[in-house]
Design a protein around this nucleic acid. Structure first.
Lengths: 127, 127
DNA sequence: TCTTGACCTTCCAGTTACTGGAGAGATTAG
DNA sequence: CTAATCTCTCCAGTAACTGGAAGGTCAAGA
Protein backbone atom coordinates (compact mmCIF):
# COMPACT_ATOMS: atom_id res chain seq x y z
CA UNK A 1 0.00 0.00 0.00
CA UNK A 2 1.37 3.41 -0.94
CA UNK A 3 0.69 6.42 1.21
CA UNK A 4 -2.42 7.62 -0.58
CA UNK A 5 -4.05 4.20 -0.21
CA UNK A 6 -3.17 4.21 3.50
CA UNK A 7 -4.57 7.71 3.70
CA UNK A 8 -7.89 6.62 2.22
CA UNK A 9 -8.02 3.45 4.31
CA UNK A 10 -7.31 5.33 7.53
CA UNK A 11 -9.31 8.44 6.84
CA UNK A 12 -6.32 10.68 7.47
CA UNK A 13 -4.74 13.15 5.03
CA UNK A 14 -1.50 12.03 3.38
CA UNK A 15 0.36 14.86 5.07
CA UNK A 16 -0.90 13.75 8.45
CA UNK A 17 0.10 10.15 7.89
CA UNK A 18 3.65 11.29 7.18
CA UNK A 19 3.55 13.65 10.12
CA UNK A 20 2.60 10.93 12.59
CA UNK A 21 5.66 8.93 11.63
CA UNK A 22 7.87 12.04 11.68
CA UNK A 23 6.99 12.68 15.31
CA UNK A 24 7.33 9.01 16.17
CA UNK A 25 3.67 8.50 17.00
CA UNK A 26 3.69 5.49 14.69
CA UNK A 27 6.67 3.49 13.52
CA UNK A 28 8.40 4.73 10.38
CA UNK A 29 7.02 2.66 7.50
CA UNK A 30 9.23 0.53 5.28
CA UNK A 31 10.19 1.92 1.90
CA UNK A 32 10.02 0.70 -1.68
CA UNK A 33 13.15 0.75 -3.83
CA UNK A 34 12.23 4.19 -5.06
CA UNK A 35 11.83 5.39 -1.49
CA UNK A 36 8.04 5.30 -1.38
CA UNK A 37 6.50 4.54 2.00
CA UNK A 38 4.66 1.23 2.10
CA UNK A 39 1.90 0.37 4.58
CA UNK A 40 0.24 -2.81 5.70
CA UNK A 41 -3.09 -3.42 7.39
CA UNK A 42 -1.60 -3.33 10.85
CA UNK A 43 -0.22 0.18 10.26
CA UNK A 44 -3.57 1.30 8.91
CA UNK A 45 -5.33 -0.04 12.00
CA UNK A 46 -3.04 2.05 14.17
CA UNK A 47 -3.72 5.11 12.07
CA UNK A 48 -7.46 4.57 12.43
CA UNK A 49 -6.99 4.18 16.17
CA UNK A 50 -5.22 7.52 16.27
CA UNK A 51 -7.82 9.21 14.12
CA UNK A 52 -10.63 8.07 16.42
CA UNK A 53 -8.66 9.12 19.49
CA UNK A 54 -8.02 12.52 17.99
CA UNK A 55 -11.71 12.88 17.19
CA UNK A 56 -12.38 12.49 20.91
CA UNK A 57 -9.99 15.35 21.45
CA UNK A 58 -7.13 13.41 22.97
CA UNK A 59 -3.83 15.21 22.46
CA UNK A 60 -1.06 13.61 20.45
CA UNK A 61 0.70 12.67 23.69
CA UNK A 62 -2.45 11.04 24.99
CA UNK A 63 -2.80 9.20 21.69
CA UNK A 64 0.73 7.98 22.19
CA UNK A 65 -0.23 6.60 25.59
CA UNK A 66 -3.47 5.09 24.35
CA UNK A 67 -1.74 3.49 21.39
CA UNK A 68 0.80 2.04 23.77
CA UNK A 69 -2.00 0.53 25.83
CA UNK A 70 -3.76 -0.66 22.67
CA UNK A 71 -0.67 -2.66 21.78
CA UNK A 72 0.05 -3.82 25.30
CA UNK A 73 -1.49 -7.18 26.14
CA UNK A 74 -0.70 -6.57 29.81
CA UNK A 75 -2.51 -3.26 30.04
CA UNK A 76 -5.08 -2.66 32.72
CA UNK A 77 -8.43 -1.19 31.82
CA UNK A 78 -7.95 1.06 34.86
CA UNK A 79 -5.17 2.90 33.06
CA UNK A 80 -7.29 3.40 29.96
CA UNK A 81 -10.22 4.53 32.04
CA UNK A 82 -8.06 7.05 33.88
CA UNK A 83 -7.02 8.73 30.64
CA UNK A 84 -10.53 8.70 29.23
CA UNK A 85 -12.02 10.06 32.44
CA UNK A 86 -9.56 12.90 32.42
CA UNK A 87 -10.62 13.77 28.90
CA UNK A 88 -14.25 13.50 29.90
CA UNK A 89 -13.73 15.98 32.69
CA UNK A 90 -12.03 18.38 30.32
CA UNK A 91 -15.00 18.11 28.00
CA UNK A 92 -17.38 18.80 30.84
CA UNK A 93 -15.34 21.79 31.95
CA UNK A 94 -15.38 23.14 28.41
CA UNK A 95 -19.12 22.59 28.25
CA UNK A 96 -19.64 24.63 31.38
CA UNK A 97 -17.48 27.43 29.98
CA UNK A 98 -19.33 27.42 26.69
CA UNK A 99 -22.67 27.37 28.41
CA UNK A 100 -22.01 30.52 30.41
CA UNK A 101 -20.44 32.18 27.38
CA UNK A 102 -23.47 31.22 25.37
CA UNK A 103 -25.97 32.52 27.88
CA UNK A 104 -24.21 35.82 28.24
CA UNK A 105 -23.72 36.38 24.53
CA UNK A 106 -27.21 35.18 23.63
CA UNK A 107 -28.65 37.68 26.08
CA UNK A 108 -26.63 40.50 24.56
CA UNK A 109 -27.49 39.55 21.01
CA UNK A 110 -31.17 39.36 21.88
CA UNK A 111 -31.17 42.75 23.48
CA UNK A 112 -29.40 44.40 20.54
CA UNK A 113 -31.85 45.90 18.09
CA UNK A 114 -29.51 45.44 15.15
CA UNK A 115 -30.63 48.52 13.28
CA UNK A 116 -28.93 51.51 11.67
CA UNK A 117 -28.36 53.30 14.96
CA UNK A 118 -25.08 53.13 16.90
CA UNK A 119 -26.54 52.29 20.34
CA UNK A 120 -25.60 48.74 21.14
CA UNK A 121 -25.67 46.77 24.39
CA UNK A 122 -22.98 44.44 23.06
CA UNK A 123 -20.51 47.26 22.56
CA UNK A 124 -21.57 48.77 25.86
CA UNK A 125 -20.86 45.50 27.62
CA UNK A 126 -17.44 45.08 26.07
CA UNK A 127 -16.35 48.68 26.63
CA UNK B 1 1.46 54.60 33.29
CA UNK B 2 4.19 52.08 32.55
CA UNK B 3 3.41 48.77 30.96
CA UNK B 4 3.01 46.79 34.17
CA UNK B 5 0.48 49.28 35.50
CA UNK B 6 -1.41 49.08 32.21
CA UNK B 7 -1.21 45.32 32.45
CA UNK B 8 -2.77 45.32 35.91
CA UNK B 9 -5.38 47.87 34.95
CA UNK B 10 -6.40 45.97 31.83
CA UNK B 11 -6.13 42.47 33.19
CA UNK B 12 -3.80 41.40 30.39
CA UNK B 13 -0.26 40.03 30.75
CA UNK B 14 2.56 42.47 29.97
CA UNK B 15 3.64 40.31 27.06
CA UNK B 16 0.18 40.41 25.59
CA UNK B 17 -0.08 44.18 25.90
CA UNK B 18 3.13 44.50 23.89
CA UNK B 19 1.95 41.87 21.45
CA UNK B 20 -1.31 43.70 20.69
CA UNK B 21 0.61 46.79 19.67
CA UNK B 22 3.14 44.74 17.69
CA UNK B 23 0.39 43.32 15.51
CA UNK B 24 -1.29 46.70 15.21
CA UNK B 25 -4.42 45.73 17.12
CA UNK B 26 -3.95 48.82 19.25
CA UNK B 27 -1.94 51.91 18.45
CA UNK B 28 1.74 51.83 19.39
CA UNK B 29 2.02 53.63 22.74
CA UNK B 30 4.17 56.70 23.20
CA UNK B 31 7.55 56.25 24.84
CA UNK B 32 9.38 57.84 27.75
CA UNK B 33 12.86 59.23 27.23
CA UNK B 34 14.33 55.91 28.24
CA UNK B 35 12.14 54.13 25.71
CA UNK B 36 9.55 52.86 28.17
CA UNK B 37 6.02 52.49 26.81
CA UNK B 38 3.56 54.86 28.46
CA UNK B 39 -0.19 54.30 28.61
CA UNK B 40 -3.17 56.47 29.37
CA UNK B 41 -6.69 55.60 30.46
CA UNK B 42 -8.00 55.56 26.91
CA UNK B 43 -5.45 52.90 25.92
CA UNK B 44 -6.33 50.84 28.94
CA UNK B 45 -10.02 51.02 28.06
CA UNK B 46 -9.24 49.62 24.64
CA UNK B 47 -7.17 46.82 26.16
CA UNK B 48 -10.03 45.95 28.46
CA UNK B 49 -12.38 45.95 25.49
CA UNK B 50 -10.09 43.50 23.70
CA UNK B 51 -9.74 41.29 26.76
CA UNK B 52 -13.51 40.99 27.13
CA UNK B 53 -13.91 40.32 23.42
CA UNK B 54 -11.26 37.62 23.56
CA UNK B 55 -13.00 36.08 26.56
CA UNK B 56 -16.06 35.68 24.36
CA UNK B 57 -13.84 33.82 21.92
CA UNK B 58 -13.69 36.46 19.22
CA UNK B 59 -10.56 36.07 17.10
CA UNK B 60 -7.99 38.83 16.96
CA UNK B 61 -9.34 39.88 13.57
CA UNK B 62 -12.86 40.06 14.97
CA UNK B 63 -11.53 42.08 17.90
CA UNK B 64 -10.02 44.42 15.35
CA UNK B 65 -13.42 44.86 13.74
CA UNK B 66 -15.22 45.24 17.04
CA UNK B 67 -12.70 47.76 18.29
CA UNK B 68 -13.17 49.69 15.06
CA UNK B 69 -16.91 49.76 15.68
CA UNK B 70 -16.37 50.68 19.33
CA UNK B 71 -14.49 53.76 18.23
CA UNK B 72 -16.80 54.58 15.35
CA UNK B 73 -19.57 57.00 16.29
CA UNK B 74 -21.29 56.22 12.99
CA UNK B 75 -21.44 52.47 13.52
CA UNK B 76 -24.70 50.61 13.18
CA UNK B 77 -25.74 48.15 15.85
CA UNK B 78 -26.66 45.82 12.97
CA UNK B 79 -22.98 45.40 12.16
CA UNK B 80 -22.10 44.61 15.77
CA UNK B 81 -25.00 42.21 16.04
CA UNK B 82 -23.91 40.41 12.86
CA UNK B 83 -20.45 39.71 14.28
CA UNK B 84 -21.80 38.65 17.66
CA UNK B 85 -24.44 36.40 16.11
CA UNK B 86 -21.80 34.68 14.04
CA UNK B 87 -19.82 33.98 17.19
CA UNK B 88 -22.94 32.79 18.94
CA UNK B 89 -23.58 30.28 16.18
CA UNK B 90 -20.03 29.03 16.41
CA UNK B 91 -20.48 28.54 20.14
CA UNK B 92 -23.69 26.63 19.56
CA UNK B 93 -22.02 24.45 16.93
CA UNK B 94 -19.19 23.71 19.34
CA UNK B 95 -21.70 22.89 22.05
CA UNK B 96 -23.39 20.35 19.82
CA UNK B 97 -20.05 18.75 18.98
CA UNK B 98 -19.04 18.59 22.61
CA UNK B 99 -22.38 17.17 23.59
CA UNK B 100 -22.13 14.21 21.24
CA UNK B 101 -18.50 13.69 22.16
CA UNK B 102 -19.47 13.79 25.80
CA UNK B 103 -22.30 11.32 25.44
CA UNK B 104 -20.18 8.85 23.53
CA UNK B 105 -17.19 9.07 25.82
CA UNK B 106 -19.29 9.05 28.99
CA UNK B 107 -20.94 5.88 27.80
CA UNK B 108 -17.61 4.22 27.16
CA UNK B 109 -16.14 5.33 30.46
CA UNK B 110 -19.18 4.06 32.32
CA UNK B 111 -19.00 0.68 30.67
CA UNK B 112 -15.29 0.25 31.40
CA UNK B 113 -14.72 -1.65 34.61
CA UNK B 114 -11.39 0.05 35.25
CA UNK B 115 -9.74 -2.90 36.94
CA UNK B 116 -6.48 -4.79 36.55
CA UNK B 117 -7.63 -6.73 33.50
CA UNK B 118 -6.88 -5.68 29.90
CA UNK B 119 -10.42 -5.96 28.50
CA UNK B 120 -11.65 -2.47 27.80
CA UNK B 121 -14.59 -1.18 25.75
CA UNK B 122 -12.80 2.14 25.25
CA UNK B 123 -9.83 0.50 23.56
CA UNK B 124 -12.19 -1.77 21.63
CA UNK B 125 -14.10 1.20 20.34
CA UNK B 126 -10.99 3.08 19.25
CA UNK B 127 -9.35 0.09 17.62
C1' DT C 1 27.46 57.02 46.53
C1' DC C 2 26.74 52.45 45.77
C1' DT C 3 24.11 48.60 45.30
C1' DT C 4 20.26 45.73 44.98
C1' DG C 5 16.11 44.48 43.07
C1' DA C 6 12.34 45.41 40.33
C1' DC C 7 11.27 47.16 35.88
C1' DC C 8 11.87 47.82 31.17
C1' DT C 9 13.75 46.93 26.34
C1' DT C 10 14.47 43.89 21.98
C1' DC C 11 14.87 39.65 19.74
C1' DC C 12 14.47 34.82 19.06
C1' DA C 13 12.42 30.44 19.80
C1' DG C 14 8.76 27.33 21.15
C1' DT C 15 3.93 25.93 21.69
C1' DT C 16 -0.19 22.47 18.99
C1' DA C 17 -1.18 19.74 15.28
C1' DC C 18 -0.99 20.06 11.33
C1' DT C 19 -1.23 22.31 6.23
C1' DG C 20 0.51 24.41 1.91
C1' DG C 21 3.72 24.74 -1.52
C1' DA C 22 8.09 24.41 -4.18
C1' DG C 23 11.13 21.61 -6.75
C1' DA C 24 12.33 17.26 -8.23
C1' DG C 25 12.12 12.15 -9.00
C1' DA C 26 8.91 7.79 -10.00
C1' DT C 27 5.16 5.46 -12.03
C1' DT C 28 1.33 4.56 -14.91
C1' DA C 29 -2.16 5.10 -18.69
C1' DG C 30 -2.90 5.93 -23.29
C1' DC D 1 6.78 8.89 -25.68
C1' DT D 2 4.31 11.95 -23.13
C1' DA D 3 1.16 13.70 -19.86
C1' DA D 4 -0.88 13.06 -15.61
C1' DT D 5 -0.56 11.51 -11.24
C1' DC D 6 2.14 10.02 -7.22
C1' DT D 7 5.69 10.49 -4.21
C1' DC D 8 9.70 12.50 -2.03
C1' DT D 9 12.08 16.21 1.06
C1' DC D 10 12.34 20.54 3.02
C1' DC D 11 10.75 24.97 4.43
C1' DA D 12 7.34 28.10 5.99
C1' DG D 13 2.98 29.44 7.91
C1' DT D 14 -1.11 29.04 10.96
C1' DA D 15 -3.29 31.46 16.10
C1' DA D 16 -2.30 33.80 19.78
C1' DC D 17 0.51 34.10 22.59
C1' DT D 18 4.52 32.64 26.10
C1' DG D 19 9.27 31.93 27.83
C1' DG D 20 13.78 33.25 28.15
C1' DA D 21 18.24 35.54 27.26
C1' DA D 22 20.99 39.67 27.29
C1' DG D 23 21.13 44.08 28.56
C1' DG D 24 19.52 49.04 29.86
C1' DT D 25 16.78 52.03 33.66
C1' DC D 26 14.99 53.50 37.94
C1' DA D 27 13.93 54.04 42.90
C1' DA D 28 14.92 52.91 47.63
C1' DG D 29 17.88 51.91 51.32
C1' DA D 30 22.67 51.48 53.73
Amino acid sequence: MNISAASKASGLPVKTVRYYADIGLVQAPSRSEAGYRTYDNASVRKLVFIRRSREFGFTIEECRELLGLYQDQDRTSAEVKRIASKRLEEIEEKQRELQSLHDELAHLVTSCRGDHRPDCPIIDYLG
